[in-house]
Amino acid sequence: MKGLFKSKPRTPVDVVRQTRELLIYTGRAPDTRETKREEKMAELSKNIRELKQILYGNSESEPVSEACAQLTQEFFRENTLRLLITCVPKLNLEARKDATQVVANLQRQQVHSKLIACEYLEKNIDLLDILVSGYENTDMALHYGAMLRECIRHQTVAKYVLESQHMKKFFDFIQLPNFDIAADAAATFKELLTRHKSTVAEFLSKNYEWFFAEYNSKLLESSNYITRRQAIKLLGDILLDRSNSVVMTRYVSSRDNLRILMNLLRESSKSIQIEAFHVFKLFAANQNKPPDIVGILITNRSKLLRLFADFKLDKENEQFEADKALVVKEIAALEPRDRP
C-alpha cells in the first residue's frame, strides 16, 4: 500500500520534527558507523534547506505565512534552536549557511502577533554565550555572528549581552587580524550600541568609566586604521543620539577625550578627520565648557582655525558648512576665564 502513495508532502511541522530527531541523533556520541552517520548528516542538511525554503520561499513560490507560523511554533515548542545552534560546527558549509538563515528568519516570525523566538531566548539566554564565543573560532565566527546580530534585535536579549562580561571581549574581537571576522564583530558591536536607545543609554550611564576608558585606549587610539575609523564613526553616532545626551555631556567635559579627538582631527585620513569633526564640534558647542577645555581650545586656537579653513567635504554639504562656521565662531570668541 505504501508504495502506491509516493511520499506524501510533508507538513512544516513534519520537517521540524524530523530535523529535531536528526539533530538529537548527531548530538549523540559517535558510536554509530561512519557511513550511517554521513547519511544522517546529509539528511539533516536536506531538512535544514527545506526549512529555509518554507521560510523564504524559492524562485517559484513566495513563503506562505501560515506554513511559517506552524514551523515557528513547532520549532520553539521544544529545544530545536539549542540543538541547531550547537550542531552548526558539525555541518558542512552550505548547511551552516542555511542554518544561519533559518535562525535569522525565525527571529522575525510572529505567531499570534508575538515574537516567540524572543520568549524562547529569554528562557535560554545562555545560548547567547555560545553565539558570542563564536568570534573566537575562525570557522564559526561568521555564522554565529550573523545569528547573534539577529538575536540582539530583541531588546531583552541585547540588554543581556550588553550587561554581560562579553561586552569587554568585543574590544578585542573588533581588532582580530582576519578582516571578515573583525568587521562582523564591529557590526554586532555597533548594533548593540545603537539599536535599543533606552537600553543603550542606561548601559552607558552605568558603565561609563570602564567603557569609555576602553573605547578611547583600545579603539580610538588603536594603531589599526580601520578600527579608528569605525570607532570614531560609532562614537559620533552614539554621542549625537538624543537619548544619550547625559553621556554626551559627560564625554565632552573631559580634557583627555578632547586631546584624543584633536589628535584624530590631525589624521591624514579624510574620513577619520571628518568623523572626528562631528564629535569635536560637540566639545566646542558645549555651553558649559570646563575651564581646562577652554584652555586647551585657546592654546590651540590658531592651529584649529587654520585647520578648519581648509576643511572641506568632497561634496558640498550645507549642514557641514554650517556646523563648521559655528565651531569656528565659537572658538574664535573664546576668552580665557579667570581661574577661581
Partner: peptide, 23 residues
C-alpha cells in the same frame, strides 16, 4: 584603499563576507 574607496565599509564587509562564504 579604504580611505579613497567610494563604497562604504559596510558594503565592503558584505562583499568580503559573501566571497568567503561561497564555495
Amino acid at each position: 584603499d579604504l580611505d579613497q574607496s567610494r563604497a562604504d565599509l559596510d558594503s565592503i564587509r558584505r562583499e568580503s563576507k559573501t566571497m568567503s562564504l561561497l564555495s
